[in-house]
């Protein structure tokens, strides 16, 4: 690795680490992806492959970079945890960044101090560089752009369709486990109603005892999110049914049952 390349890679690593640590999410995402999938593997690949040799083909190099990056994430995390470290954003960022810088250092050192060995492996051959021409524009860039656009459109649309389809408003009535029996033989129960549609109201909650007699009645006024919560007191010796009615409906909309204390 020549000094310029080593310097660029090291500098990019430092910038990436800072972005991951301090930048807002829209900046942290691309830099985080770079640190997770590219930089450690790139540096380690450069460190592993001897200078002057083409031990790896382009395909192998392309695949090895993210592989080693993921290996750093996993094995580095295991090593950190095994010595008592905590796996959080900073520690993982440091694992990746330090490994990258170490790899850059090794690659740079080897390039400066090791004479390229040309025996036993394929010799360095001049590679054809990708030249951007008008023909390339039509043959490569245009169709690839089209493919990416199609995938993007399909993905975004699929996501939106899925969210819209499954994003159903769920109206639930729930109760926490009843509290202890007080001196009067009653228990306090925290009851919550979620997802109430104000337009479908008014809502009322009716408590019915074991024998069917009405114990109490409450008007429910949901907040702007359609949620309501409140405490109700129920006799501990009765099996209480909590019915939630909606509008003018005569059948309960949602029902809870609080068993009597045995």
């Amino acid at each position: 690795m020549n000094p310029v390349r080593a310097g660029v890679l090291a500098g990019l690593t430092v910038v990436t680490a800072l972005a991951v640590a301090f930048a807002p999410i829209w900046i942290a995402v691309p830099f985080g992806l770079l640190l997770a999938f590219v930089l450690p593997g790139l540096a380690l690949t450069e460190a592993v492959i001897r200078p002057g040799r083409r031990d790896l083909g382009v395909v192998e190099r392309i695949v090895l970079v993210p592989s080693l990056s993921l290996a750093v994430l996993v094995l580095g995390g295991l090593a950190l945890w095994s010595i008592g470290g905590n796996l959080n954003r900073t520690s993982w960022m440091l694992v990746c960044a330090v490994t990258t810088l170490a790899g850059v250092g090794v690659a740079f050192y080897r390039a400066q101090n090791i004479v390229p060995v040309l025996t036993g492996g394929p010799a360095e051959e001049p590679r054809e560089k990708y030249r951007f021409t008008q023909e390339r524009l039509v043959k490569d860039v245009l169709p690839l752009t089209l493919a990416v656009l199609l995938l993007g459109v399909a993905g975004v649309w699929s996501f939106a369709d899925s969210v819209n389809t499954y994003d159903v408003r769920v109206t639930s009535l729930s109760a926490e486990a009843p509290g202890p029996v007080d001196a009067e033989g009653n228990r306090v129960v925290q009851v919550t109603a979620d997802g109430l549609e104000v337009a479908s109201g008014p809502y009322r909650m009716v408590l019915v005892g074991t024998t069917g007699q009405q114990l109490s009645k409450h008007d429910i006024a949901p907040d702007t999110d359609g949620d309501w919560t409140g405490r109700i007191t129920v006799p501990s010796d009765q099996r209480v049914t909590v019915n939630l009615f909606r509008g003018a409906e005569t059948e309960p909309f949602r029902t809870l049952i609080i068993a009597a204390v045995p």
Partner: peptide
């Protein structure tokens, strides 16, 4: 002895 503590319909 069984309580119904959650109901979303």
């Amino acid at each position: 002895t069984i309580s119904r503590l959650y109901d979303n319909g």
